[in-house]
């Protein structure tokens, strides 16, 4: 998988940016929560592109945000 660079991102439309980020986020999210990975990734993609890049670079931050997403999901399903 080719590395995700800023120049690659800025050359893409906002929509394409999210797609690129999602493809990279998804396998990482799957490690954290395989069952909810599709939904968690969907929630994380609602954040700004710059924030998603931070998540991709920091496993700790990604885990924190994924856990928050799970909490949101659980609240939503009540």
């Amino acid at each position: 998988q080719e590395p995700l660079t800023i120049s690659l991102l800025v050359s893409a439309s906002p929509h394409e940016q999210k797609q690129m980020l999602g493809v990279r986020l998804f396998p990482l999210v799957q490690i954290i929560d395989k069952k909810l990975a599709e939904k968690i990734t969907g929630i994380l993609l609602e954040f700004d592109t710059s924030e998603i890049i931070y998540m991709l670079e920091s496993p700790e931050l990604l885990r924190t945000m994924a856990n928050k997403a799970v909490t949101l999901l659980q609240g939503h399903q009540v």
């Binding site: 797609q19 986020l25 599709e38 939904k39 993609l45 609602e46």
Partner: peptide, 22 residues
């Protein structure tokens, strides 16, 4: 109650639709 379609699910290989207002 009112069930809005949230969250959007991301599936690898499927073009991301996301929220309408992105």
């Amino acid at each position: 109650g009112s069930s809005i379609n949230w969250p959007p699910e991301f599936h690898p290989g499927v073009p991301w639709k996301g929220l309408q207002n992105i």
